[in-house]
Amino acid sequence: MSNSSLLKTAVLAGSLLFGTAGATVGEEADARKILGSMTEYVSSLDALSFDFEEYHEIVTTDGERLGLAASGSVALVRPDKIRVLRRTGYTDTDLAFDGQTLSLTDSDAGLFARHALPGTLDHLIDTLRDDFAKPLPAADLLTGGGHGGLTAPTAEIKDLGVGVVSGMLCDHLALRGEEADWQIWVAQGDTPYPCMFIITSRNIPLAPQYRIEVHKWQAGPVEADFAPEKPAAATEVALADYLKGARNLPPNFIVEVEK
């Protein structure tokens, strides 16, 4: 038997022996306690910042699962200020909100938009998701889980033990909702921040995933301009025109519209 066959046999044997992790009542209580500690900690912070690596999978019409990678940073001051920088390789975007006005810049497309939107961060997150179908990256991490399902009722929750993310010891939790599976790695210790977060969409063929890995987590004062000026090279447009012209996919991707 070749080394390749041995490897395939070992992988198959491992998959047969590794069943779904069960959860006793005590284990579920521990998992919910860990999740609660994370949400309480993140929600209690007046200001925070972090860098992130993002990986977003899409499924093509011929059944191929592809991943799009991005990097970015977040600076947040409660209750109503945030700035999110995101770089994808095909576009650089900048979202800023100062409690009164949402400012958006797409430097590659040369677009800039201002939109009056007085309110809190929660209002901003809800409006972007519900009115414009533009979920804010890492919204669940920013609010402690209240906007995407982490704190919603789930069919089950499991404590999968300890994992390591970027050298940080983390408690690994798995949650199952009606349409998606969630995994989250929560830093152990006095600062239980989310180190990594994965959503698996079960109702989409091939179950694509969305993942964010957090780096350089910082609780405390942040330095950021939450009301940036329009870049000299950008054209100011209405928010609807900005969203229409902003690139969500690389330029060589073709979006097919269902008829």
Rank of each mutant, 00 (worst) to 15 (best):
S5G: 06
K216F: 00
K8P: 03
K230N: 05
L136G: 09
G245S: 10
D190N: 14
L6W: 09
S15C: 14
M1T: 15
H123T: 07
I82Q: 02
G99K: 09
T24L: 07
I204P: 10
V11P: 03
A232E: 15
V42Q: 07
W185H: 08
E57L: 02
R247P: 08
V25A: 15
F18Y: 11
F226Q: 01
R211D: 02
L249N: 12
F97R: 07
G99H: 06
L48T: 09
L142D: 10
A75I: 00
H56A: 12
A234D: 13
P194T: 09
G99Q: 12
M1E: 14
G67Q: 12
T235H: 11
W217R: 03
E57W: 03
V222F: 06
V25I: 14
K259E: 15
I34K: 08
L85P: 01
F197L: 11
L111R: 01
K81Q: 15
A227Q: 11
L206W: 01
L95R: 01
G110V: 05
V186E: 11
T120G: 03
H123C: 00
R114M: 05
T93D: 11
P251V: 02
L85K: 09
V59M: 01
S166W: 00
Y55H: 08
F197W: 14
G149D: 13
L169N: 15
G22E: 10
W182I: 02
A155K: 07
G245E: 10
R129F: 04
A116E: 15
S37I: 01
A75F: 08
P251D: 13
A29G: 06
T105A: 10
L150E: 05
S43Y: 04
E223N: 11
G146H: 09
S4V: 08
S44E: 08
W185P: 03
A29V: 12
A31T: 06
D92K: 07
E156F: 00
A31M: 04
T20C: 11
E256D: 11
K8M: 08
L150I: 04
A75T: 02
T191I: 06
L169T: 13
A238D: 15
A227R: 04
V214W: 01
A47K: 08
G63H: 01
V77R: 03
I204Y: 01
E223P: 03
E223S: 15
T39N: 13
L121I: 13
E256G: 09
A238C: 00
N252D: 15
Y210T: 12
G110H: 05
I34S: 03
L68E: 10
G148Q: 06
L111D: 13
P228T: 04
V77F: 03
P231M: 04
A224K: 01
M196A: 12
D62N: 15
M38S: 15
G110M: 02
Q100D: 13
K8G: 04
E213N: 09
S37L: 06
I82Y: 04
P251F: 00
A29P: 10
L160E: 14
D131I: 00
V222N: 06
D181L: 04
